[in-house]
Amino acid sequence: MKKNSERNHKYYVLGFYLLLLGSWQLFSSLNLIQDYLFPAPVDVARRLWQLGSEGFLWPSIEATLARMAVGFSISAGTGLIIGLLMGMSRLINGCLRSLFLGLQTLPTAGWVPISVLLFGLSDHGIYFVIIMSSVAAVAIATSDGILNISPIYLRAARTLGTPAYAMPSHIILPAALPGIITGIKLGWTLGWHGAVSAELIKSSVGLGYLLYMGRELNDVSQVIAIMLITILFGLLLDRFLFGLIERSVRIRWGLESNAA
């Protein structure tokens, strides 16, 4: 019964997107929107195909993902360590939490100008933007994860003779894992925003660069095509990679049931 209604729900959502795409195409075909202002879906698809076959698309996706791999690894590692310290010391938590919450109100693109001033047009500046966009989210989620650890695990660990030096690695980090993964997932999304924003201004390859070129060339199809690709890859990693890890951890930790 429940399964059935869930499947119906999925069909409705699929139908919604088909309707959206269909009406967009219809509006363009009927010339209700000017095609130099806003292209039809087929134009976007054609442009995307061109970008792919001319060899612009893959290298750009690869470049952005590679920058994310470097920048976000640094950011996640740093955020994890800072979050661990925040989770274990009330003083550090008090100081850094307010700072991070403040910094988080800055839109990710807000880090771009300062990165240009500090790092010029090198890739280091892009790493900087990725790190600054995401490190606070990872740190805060990690510390929240630690502060929410059920005290029963800590007591069990102590009664089983865990020495103090082994607590972070053997108990605190694994017990906080569900929260940490949520933070990494959020951090990834923010870092992805940051990466593309930074590439808009200071790169010669990457998704942001293709967006920028599309604007320079007045090529709306390219802009929309790259926007869709950016959404697609952001979503792919967020939903599928981190989303699946998150779910399996939550099931294992008994926070969610695996009855689908």
């Binding site: 695990y153 069990a156 009664t159 089983l160 003779g161 108990i171 694994p174 017990a175 294992r252 930790w253």
Partner: peptide, 15 residues
């Protein structure tokens, strides 16, 4: 661990 406690909830480590 010379006085081991067993808790009301099982307190096993899920990881």
């Amino acid at each position: 661990n010379d006085r081991l406690m067993m808790f009301q909830e099982h307190a096993l480590f899920p990881w």
